[in-house]
Design a protein around this nucleic acid. Structure first.
Lengths: 339, 339
DNA sequence: AACCTTAACTCTAACGTTTTCGTGTTGAAA
DNA sequence: TTTCAACACGAAAACGTTAGAGTTAAGGTT
């Protein structure tokens, strides 16, 4: 097992100094053509590649950006990652992905690990547990240490940094408005508990749409689900004795489960009830009926976040003020709604 | 922006040497209690954390394992990652994920980047394009340089290293056997082109099952799809004039599309046709009818791969021979088949 | 002959750590 | 008084790389 070759070894073999080797490989004019060619040939033969770790240490730059996300088994996040990857690779950056599994402790650990030299900056979406605890000291700390951070999707007002979000409220508004425009009179929302920022915002959008159309907000039509794993039962209980004709769900899973429950209750989608979800995942397209959703444009979001971060990394001199980019959503109409 | 504090800075502040600081923080008996406490207090105050890059360089170990996978928008891979993460974190390793996007070039780039000091070893599943090109020099090279590599799922016989696979053939066999046992007489398979190793193996399992049960292999019942994006049309064309009563699909997408096509052709699932897919993804559970599948146990696979790799990393002295672990699949019976 | 230029290298410091090997100061035993 | 541990600390090298500041020898200028 021949370990990777280093400049030192090449230098020894060719009986020159390390700096000569280094300069030769960089095509420095200080070195004679003869020597340069000899070195280059040797380096190629042994497939020399500079050690990134050493470079990082020397340059105090890793050319790597860290992504910390709550979970990966989630189509939205994977599309965001695609977007980040794309931009990052184009600009010569590599990407490290770490999972917090929605755990506060793991998020802290990940952040610490990556902040200690492994990356130049972060793109992150916060863990559910962190949002619940409202403890953001770890994020503030890395920012204080001079690490640029870009937050996306689940963002925190208290933390001052660049952010990329979608107009959750407006997306929800549009969805509900569509339902209203298409003759729904009694529209329910299936949302998450309020500490999940996006759930809260989407609920606000729902309410806004009702108010704008002079409809009443009926607390009985608002379901907030804590435990995703048992959402189907909760939804069944919720829908059992309500004669709703429209449902807006704040994520894909809730929408799918709602349709399942409706089938069980012998209601037809979309004839009796129209359903719109949030997040355009794999399930939405395949489901029967295919699901109308609010598209979050994850890839675009990732791209924007990466651009913001790299911008900041490469222009550290000028202190630009932080910005929050709001991306538009778009409504994808499929078969789960009346048209 | 106070950059991260270093040993040197602490040393200067406290007017001691760098080594004293380092030793103090490691609680070395060489240092007086007095000094140690002073240093520790100071370090804590300024939240000193050793720089990973420097440590990696010094120790020639990164305590990081690299994962290279073809795509992330794929539930199976995300579960594998979960499994790897879990084991790795438990054993004090971090995880870097890189995407090849099924491109050969990107796979080479990723491998080179990660091999140059960023990780101690790899866990990878090969890009489709690489399998097609049958060019594995990049992988052989990193192995030659002393990097342990564990391959999973899509593995290559020519590359000698630890491997973790599922019994694709046997999983397919069981699925088809189930169909046969439940009165299917004319069973079709929807597979991928042969250069994708798993597609080939699963097709073999399908054939084996037929042969074992004295049924004929009818090439007309075998569909091989190249382009996933237009699979639905291909499947429709394929199924149009065939009176099959059982379908085995080598992935989730094909299974779902098959059911859609069947509905369009006014066949009922499972009454008229039983369908079994491969990979237990998000869609399978939610789909109506819920999809019977061959479960690949991704998490287990990831865990096994991580264990193999870490074992090799921590026992570099003893040259163990390479092993291929074959994990069992299991059949999950849901509503898409007759029972 | 004394000086300068230039080509072609080499040396050194630096990035942040750890660790081995000094080294100077005590206090005590001989 | 000399000698020697023990103690508490510092200096230096090493990991692999790069870049600026030397160094050397050959040749050219005055």
């Amino acid at each position: 097992m021949p370990r990777k070759i280093t400049l030192k070894q090449i230098a020894k073999e060719l009986d020159v100094s390390v700096s000569t080797v280094s300069k030769s490989l960089k095509d420095s004019p200080e070195i004679s053509l003869d020597t340069k060619e000899k070195v280059k040939a040797f380096a190629k033969l042994y497939n020399y590649k500079p050690n990134n770790i050493a470079l990082s240490l020397k340059n105090r730059k890793t050319k790597t950006i860290g992504i910390i996300i709550p979970e990966i088994v989630h189509h939205f996040f994977t599309t965001v990652i695609q977007g980040i990857e794309h931009v990052a690779n184009e600009k010569g950056y590599n990407v490290i992905i770490c999972l917090s599994n929605n755990s506060f402790d793991k998020e802290v650990l990940n952040l610490e690990f990556l902040a200690n030299g492994s990356t130049d900056g972060f793109i992150m979406s916060i863990a559910k547990e962190t949002q619940q605890k409202e403890d953001y000291h770890h994020i503030k700390e890395v920012i204080n240490q001079g690490m640029p951070v870009v937050m996306f999707d689940r963002v925190i007002d208290e933390v001052i940094c660049d952010k990329v979000v979608i107009s959750d409220k407006h997306g929800a508004f549009e969805a509900v408005q569509y339902l209203i425009d298409h003759h729904c009179k009694k529209i329910a929302i299936i949302s998450t508990v309020d500490y999940v920022s996006v759930g809260k915002l989407r609920t606000e959008g729902y309410k806004d749409a009702l108010i704008t159309n002079d409809m009443e907000i009926d607390q009985d039509l608002i379901l907030k689900i804590e435990d995703v794993d048992h959402s189907e039962e909760k939804i069944e209980e919720f829908l059992k004795n309500k004669n709703v004709d429209g449902i807006f769900a704040v994520n894909e899973q809730f929408a799918v489960n709602a349709i399942k429950v409706l089938k069980k209750l012998h209601k037809k989608v979309p004839e009796d009830v129209s359903v719109i979800g949030f997040t355009d995942g794999v399930v939405s397209k395949s489901f029967i009926p295919s699901l109308s959703t609010v598209n979050q444009h994850g890839e675009e979001m990732g791209a924007k976040a990466a651009n913001l971060l790299i911008d900041r990394l490469e222009n550290e001199a000028e202190e630009q003020s932080f910005q929050t980019t709001v991306l538009d959503t778009s409504l994808i109409i499929r078969d789960s709604v009346k048209k």
